[in-house]
Design a protein around this nucleic acid. Structure first.
Lengths: 229, 229
DNA sequence: CGGGCAAGATTGTCAGACAATAGATTAGAA
DNA sequence: TTCTAATCTATTGTCTGACAATCTTGCCCG
């Protein structure tokens, strides 16, 4: 899979897109901490866009759940409470379970299974994720879920799932800091892949549901500092 | 249920909110047809807001799925293709099924069931929805689903469901134009309410899933004119 | 120490300007 | 005439500067 060579000059996406991307990346990377207030004046300076464009970007990010807006207090990085995270995982569970089901249905109907076969090979090549940094595994993990959603071939579903994944990246990240969780996560992915490749919707759905139920439980065990309030 | 008396003067919500509300209402009411292009200059005049505020409003509505934005072509009222509507209903099915399940779980756990009992009474008072205009029944229908989601008590879920309902109001509306569908819909609501009141999550989930599966089927039978492409 | 006020910081909103782009129109060539 | 290309027009994308409304902070006074 060859990418076109990385463009160096500020690629000519719209100002609003550039701003939104930069902020989203900043939130994901921790450059902007949860709860942190984002001052328009600072951002217009660092992102080199006008206040109007910046405001359009923050509105969009707020709608996507990355930021929160309070009247006359502007934007801050969204910080979830324990309860909200529990709610969020419950919904994600339902949606990703559906993704698993649909993916299996499509494979059973003869859709291309190369992507999933590749994942199986990749997992079996390193079933414990030995030697993977948290960064890398986080990226792999996201790619896995993305690929599965792609096989499910339901754009609405893809968008809904993405909007649930965004606000919780930070939490998910802290999960994957321990080798134990990484290995466990990979094991669950393997079960999911097998069910999907077998074209067994019920099994794929259950495997995915289990996976997220366990993730949720582990996230809930994180210490208070990870949460709001 | 008493509302505070309707405020006559342009209520002091922010300019962006006013604009977004007005556009959303216009889309729901058909004042702006699906696919119709929304010209900024026209809207700033009719809504009495600046271009900046208007653009923030359209960005938000686009993120909510009400409008579509195309670079250099601006905003247009989102129009769904048959396939997208099918996808959308599949996702809604999963989410509302979860809502049914959670609602039943909460009732079983002792949560207040007054709202649901009221619905049962209302349904049994007029089980065929005789004499209800499509407008009214549409509103009732929305209230029912909203109330159920409220009993489910999961804000994330509520927001996700809302974002799926918005783009399809128009289609749903055309469904409810025939007395047959209204009666059928009420019958299904009754099943759902009974399962929730019984505190039976599995049954509530199935009843809700059935309801949406049937709605989806009926929506798919609408003629081509209702869809894009 | 606590209340309250003034000053400063920040957001909400507007108006006006101009470049970039897409779509429509017209002119020209075959 | 019909197709193509240049031109015009409507519209969006973006910036700047301005000001009122609101929130925050720090200081003063009792």
């Amino acid at each position: 899979m060859h990418e076109s060579p990385t463009i160096q000059v500020p690629l000519p996406a719209s100002a609003v897109d550039r701003a939104a991307d930069a902020i989203a990346r900043g939130v994901a990377s921790g450059r902007y901490a949860p709860g942190q207030r984002l001052i328009e004046a600072d951002l217009t300076r660092s992102l080199q866009v006008s206040r109007g464009s910046l405001r359009e970007a923050t509105r969009r990010l707020a709608a996507e759940g990355v930021l929160e807006l309070e009247p006359h207090r502007g934007a801050r990085v969204r910080q979830l409470s324990r309860g909200e995270v529990a709610d969020l995982y419950r919904v994600r569970q339902a949606l990703e379970a559906l993704a698993g089901r649909l993916a299996a249905e499509r494979i059973a109907a003869g859709a291309d299974d190369a992507v999933m076969r590749r994942w199986l090979a990749e997992i079996d090549a390193n079933p414990n994720g030995a030697g993977l940094s948290a960064d890398i595994y986080m990226a792999d993990n996201n790619r896995f879920h993305d690929d599965l959603v792609k096989v499910a071939a339901n754009d609405v579903l893809a968008k809904q799932i993405a909007s649930l994944r965004l606000p919780a990246v930070r939490l998910q990240f802290s999960l994957l800091l321990t080798q134990k969780h990484v290995a466990e996560s990979i094991r669950q992915h393997r079960r999911i892949v097998l069910a999907v490749l077998a074209g067994d919707p019920g099994r794929a759905e259950r495997a995915m549901r289990d996976h997220l139920r366990k993730s949720s439980r582990t996230v809930q065990e994180l210490p208070d500092e990870a949460y709001a309030d």
